Simulated assay, not measured.
Amino acid sequence: MTEFDPAPTHRNFYGRRHGKTLRQSQKGYLSEDLGSLRPRGITVEENPDRSPIDPAAIFGDARLVWLEVGFGGGEHMVAMAARYPGIGIIGCEPFINGVAMLLGKIRAAGVSNLSVHPGDARDLMDVLPDASISKAFLNYPDPWPKARHHRRRFVTPEHLIPLHRIMAPGAEFRVATDIPDYMRQALEEVPKAGFTLVHEGPEPWDDWHSTRYEQKALREGRVPHYATFRR
Protein backbone atom coordinates (compact mmCIF):
# COMPACT_ATOMS: atom_id res chain seq x y z
CA MET A 1 0.00 0.00 0.00
CA THR A 2 1.48 3.36 -0.97
CA GLU A 3 1.50 6.32 1.38
CA PHE A 4 -1.28 8.09 -0.51
CA ASP A 5 -3.32 5.59 -2.50
CA PRO A 6 -6.01 7.04 -4.74
CA ALA A 7 -9.50 6.70 -3.37
CA PRO A 8 -11.61 3.95 -4.92
CA THR A 9 -13.62 5.04 -7.92
CA HIS A 10 -16.63 3.61 -6.09
CA ARG A 11 -16.92 3.35 -2.32
CA ASN A 12 -19.92 1.85 -0.60
CA PHE A 13 -21.62 4.11 1.89
CA TYR A 14 -24.11 2.76 4.42
CA GLY A 15 -26.41 4.94 6.46
CA ARG A 16 -28.55 8.01 6.03
CA ARG A 17 -27.47 11.22 4.34
CA HIS A 18 -30.78 13.03 4.86
CA GLY A 19 -33.45 12.90 7.55
CA LYS A 20 -36.54 14.98 8.24
CA THR A 21 -37.04 18.25 6.41
CA LEU A 22 -34.64 20.94 7.57
CA ARG A 23 -35.92 24.09 9.22
CA GLN A 24 -35.34 27.35 7.38
CA SER A 25 -32.74 28.38 9.92
CA GLN A 26 -30.83 25.13 9.31
CA LYS A 27 -30.97 25.65 5.57
CA GLY A 28 -29.49 29.08 6.21
CA TYR A 29 -26.62 27.62 8.24
CA LEU A 30 -25.80 25.24 5.40
CA SER A 31 -25.91 27.89 2.69
CA GLU A 32 -24.19 30.65 4.67
CA ASP A 33 -21.69 28.90 6.96
CA LEU A 34 -20.68 25.51 5.60
CA GLY A 35 -18.64 26.83 2.69
CA SER A 36 -16.15 28.67 4.88
CA LEU A 37 -15.83 25.77 7.33
CA ARG A 38 -15.40 22.94 4.84
CA PRO A 39 -11.79 21.79 4.26
CA ARG A 40 -10.70 21.91 0.61
CA GLY A 41 -9.15 19.09 -1.35
CA ILE A 42 -11.23 16.28 0.10
CA THR A 43 -13.52 15.42 -2.78
CA VAL A 44 -12.38 13.68 -5.94
CA GLU A 45 -13.64 16.68 -7.93
CA GLU A 46 -11.38 19.05 -5.99
CA ASN A 47 -8.47 16.65 -5.71
CA PRO A 48 -8.65 13.98 -8.43
CA ASP A 49 -5.12 12.65 -7.85
CA ARG A 50 -5.77 12.49 -4.07
CA SER A 51 -2.70 14.55 -3.17
CA PRO A 52 -2.17 15.09 0.58
CA ILE A 53 -3.67 18.25 1.99
CA ASP A 54 -1.96 20.53 4.50
CA PRO A 55 -3.85 20.64 7.84
CA ALA A 56 -2.09 23.92 8.69
CA ALA A 57 -3.86 25.50 5.72
CA ILE A 58 -7.22 24.60 7.27
CA PHE A 59 -6.66 26.53 10.49
CA GLY A 60 -4.04 29.03 9.35
CA ASP A 61 -1.21 27.79 11.55
CA ALA A 62 0.60 24.66 12.69
CA ARG A 63 -1.59 23.95 15.72
CA LEU A 64 -2.42 20.41 16.86
CA VAL A 65 -5.34 18.90 14.97
CA TRP A 66 -7.98 16.53 16.35
CA LEU A 67 -10.54 14.49 14.42
CA GLU A 68 -14.12 13.58 15.37
CA VAL A 69 -15.64 10.81 13.28
CA GLY A 70 -19.43 11.06 13.01
CA PHE A 71 -20.15 14.06 15.24
CA GLY A 72 -23.91 13.50 15.32
CA GLY A 73 -25.54 16.73 16.45
CA GLY A 74 -22.20 18.34 17.31
CA GLU A 75 -22.58 18.67 21.09
CA HIS A 76 -19.25 17.06 21.95
CA MET A 77 -17.34 18.70 19.11
CA VAL A 78 -18.43 22.24 19.98
CA ALA A 79 -17.80 21.69 23.68
CA MET A 80 -14.26 20.47 22.99
CA ALA A 81 -13.62 23.40 20.66
CA ALA A 82 -14.68 25.83 23.37
CA ARG A 83 -12.61 24.05 26.02
CA TYR A 84 -9.48 23.83 23.84
CA PRO A 85 -9.44 26.99 21.69
CA GLY A 86 -5.81 26.45 20.66
CA ILE A 87 -6.63 23.10 19.05
CA GLY A 88 -8.05 22.67 15.54
CA ILE A 89 -10.81 20.07 15.29
CA ILE A 90 -12.03 18.51 12.04
CA GLY A 91 -15.40 16.79 12.20
CA CYS A 92 -16.77 14.33 9.65
CA GLU A 93 -20.49 13.64 9.33
CA PRO A 94 -22.35 12.53 6.18
CA PHE A 95 -25.82 13.05 7.75
CA ILE A 96 -26.74 16.52 6.55
CA ASN A 97 -29.25 17.11 9.37
CA GLY A 98 -26.44 16.59 11.88
CA VAL A 99 -24.23 18.99 9.94
CA ALA A 100 -26.97 21.63 10.08
CA MET A 101 -27.35 21.12 13.85
CA LEU A 102 -23.60 21.49 14.33
CA LEU A 103 -23.50 24.73 12.34
CA GLY A 104 -26.23 26.19 14.53
CA LYS A 105 -24.26 25.27 17.66
CA ILE A 106 -21.09 26.81 16.21
CA ARG A 107 -22.93 30.08 15.69
CA ALA A 108 -24.35 30.02 19.20
CA ALA A 109 -21.02 29.16 20.86
CA GLY A 110 -18.92 31.51 18.73
CA VAL A 111 -16.08 29.00 18.36
CA SER A 112 -13.74 29.46 15.41
CA ASN A 113 -11.40 26.44 15.63
CA LEU A 114 -13.58 23.90 13.82
CA SER A 115 -13.62 22.51 10.30
CA VAL A 116 -16.51 20.47 8.93
CA HIS A 117 -16.34 17.72 6.31
CA PRO A 118 -19.96 16.85 5.41
CA GLY A 119 -19.10 13.39 4.15
CA ASP A 120 -17.43 10.04 4.71
CA ALA A 121 -14.42 10.08 7.06
CA ARG A 122 -12.62 7.69 4.70
CA ASP A 123 -12.47 10.40 2.03
CA LEU A 124 -10.78 12.75 4.49
CA MET A 125 -8.37 10.09 5.74
CA ASP A 126 -7.36 9.38 2.13
CA VAL A 127 -5.73 12.81 1.89
CA LEU A 128 -4.52 13.62 5.40
CA PRO A 129 -0.73 13.30 5.77
CA ASP A 130 0.90 10.69 7.96
CA ALA A 131 0.94 11.49 11.70
CA SER A 132 -1.14 14.65 11.26
CA ILE A 133 -3.85 13.94 13.87
CA SER A 134 -3.12 14.25 17.60
CA LYS A 135 -6.39 12.88 18.96
CA ALA A 136 -9.44 11.16 17.46
CA PHE A 137 -12.97 10.58 18.77
CA LEU A 138 -15.56 7.97 17.85
CA ASN A 139 -18.65 8.76 19.92
CA TYR A 140 -21.76 6.61 19.73
CA PRO A 141 -21.22 5.40 16.18
CA ASP A 142 -23.96 3.65 14.23
CA PRO A 143 -24.11 0.23 15.95
CA TRP A 144 -25.11 -1.85 12.91
CA PRO A 145 -26.50 -4.48 15.31
CA LYS A 146 -27.10 -7.31 12.83
CA ALA A 147 -24.13 -9.68 12.58
CA ARG A 148 -24.05 -9.49 8.79
CA HIS A 149 -23.63 -5.71 9.05
CA HIS A 150 -20.73 -5.68 11.52
CA ARG A 151 -18.32 -5.12 8.63
CA ARG A 152 -19.97 -1.71 8.17
CA ARG A 153 -18.84 -0.54 11.59
CA PHE A 154 -16.01 1.97 11.87
CA VAL A 155 -13.96 -0.44 13.98
CA THR A 156 -12.91 -2.52 10.99
CA PRO A 157 -9.57 -2.59 9.13
CA GLU A 158 -10.99 -0.48 6.27
CA HIS A 159 -11.22 2.44 8.69
CA LEU A 160 -8.70 1.62 11.39
CA ILE A 161 -5.65 1.10 9.17
CA PRO A 162 -5.92 4.57 7.56
CA LEU A 163 -6.75 6.06 10.97
CA HIS A 164 -3.55 4.57 12.37
CA ARG A 165 -1.57 6.07 9.49
CA ILE A 166 -2.82 9.61 10.00
CA MET A 167 -2.42 9.63 13.79
CA ALA A 168 0.78 10.85 15.39
CA PRO A 169 2.83 8.50 17.58
CA GLY A 170 1.35 8.58 21.07
CA ALA A 171 -1.95 10.06 19.84
CA GLU A 172 -5.12 9.06 21.66
CA PHE A 173 -8.14 7.37 20.05
CA ARG A 174 -11.30 7.50 22.18
CA VAL A 175 -14.34 5.28 21.63
CA ALA A 176 -17.69 5.74 23.41
CA THR A 177 -20.65 3.42 22.88
CA ASP A 178 -23.64 1.95 24.72
CA ILE A 179 -23.61 -1.23 22.63
CA PRO A 180 -21.63 -4.04 24.34
CA ASP A 181 -20.99 -5.90 21.09
CA TYR A 182 -19.63 -2.74 19.47
CA MET A 183 -17.15 -2.34 22.32
CA ARG A 184 -16.28 -6.03 22.04
CA GLN A 185 -15.42 -5.54 18.38
CA ALA A 186 -13.46 -2.36 19.13
CA LEU A 187 -11.40 -4.13 21.80
CA GLU A 188 -10.62 -6.90 19.32
CA GLU A 189 -9.97 -4.89 16.16
CA VAL A 190 -8.40 -1.60 17.25
CA PRO A 191 -5.27 -3.25 18.74
CA LYS A 192 -4.87 -5.32 15.56
CA ALA A 193 -4.53 -2.04 13.64
CA GLY A 194 -1.55 -0.97 15.76
CA PHE A 195 -3.16 0.74 18.75
CA THR A 196 -2.61 -0.09 22.42
CA LEU A 197 -5.53 -0.26 24.83
CA VAL A 198 -4.98 2.19 27.69
CA HIS A 199 -8.32 2.03 29.52
CA GLU A 200 -11.83 0.64 29.15
CA GLY A 201 -14.76 0.93 31.51
CA PRO A 202 -17.99 2.75 32.49
CA GLU A 203 -16.32 5.99 33.60
CA PRO A 204 -15.93 8.73 30.97
CA TRP A 205 -12.95 10.99 30.50
CA ASP A 206 -12.50 14.05 32.71
CA ASP A 207 -13.30 16.37 29.80
CA TRP A 208 -16.11 14.25 28.36
CA HIS A 209 -19.18 16.12 27.12
CA SER A 210 -22.29 13.97 26.84
CA THR A 211 -24.15 13.74 23.53
CA ARG A 212 -27.79 13.41 22.58
CA TYR A 213 -27.17 9.77 21.73
CA GLU A 214 -25.72 9.06 25.16
CA GLN A 215 -28.66 10.75 26.85
CA LYS A 216 -31.04 8.61 24.79
CA ALA A 217 -29.12 5.47 25.80
CA LEU A 218 -29.32 6.42 29.48
CA ARG A 219 -33.07 7.09 29.24
CA GLU A 220 -33.53 3.65 27.69
CA GLY A 221 -31.45 1.92 30.35
CA ARG A 222 -28.30 1.15 28.37
CA VAL A 223 -24.91 1.53 30.05
CA PRO A 224 -22.26 3.61 28.26
CA HIS A 225 -18.71 2.32 28.00
CA TYR A 226 -15.58 4.24 27.13
CA ALA A 227 -12.25 3.02 25.78
CA THR A 228 -8.96 4.82 25.26
CA PHE A 229 -6.39 3.53 22.79
CA ARG A 230 -2.98 4.96 22.01
CA ARG A 231 -1.22 4.99 18.65
Rank of each mutant, 00 (worst) to 15 (best):
L138D: 00
R165P: 03
L160K: 07
N139P: 00
R174L: 11
H159F: 14
A147K: 15
W205I: 00
E172S: 09
A176G: 07
A186S: 15
P162L: 10
R184H: 08
L128Y: 09
H199V: 01
K216W: 00
W208D: 10
P202F: 06
L197C: 13
T177V: 08
M183R: 09
M167N: 10
G194A: 13
A168L: 14
M125P: 02
F195D: 04
A136P: 01
W205E: 11
A136T: 12
N139F: 08
P162V: 07
P145G: 01
E214A: 07
T177M: 05
I179H: 14
V175W: 01
N139M: 04
D207Q: 12
T211K: 07
K216I: 09
W208K: 05
A186V: 07
D130G: 04
N139Q: 05
M183V: 03
D207V: 12
I161D: 14
K146R: 14
T196S: 11
M125D: 04
D123P: 04
L187T: 08
E158W: 00
K216M: 12
G194Y: 02
A131H: 15
P157N: 11
H209R: 10
I166K: 11
A186G: 06
H209W: 05
F195I: 09
P141V: 05
L124G: 00
E188G: 08
T177Q: 06
Y213S: 05
V190Q: 05
W205G: 01
E189G: 00
T211D: 07
H209K: 10
M183T: 01
E188P: 02
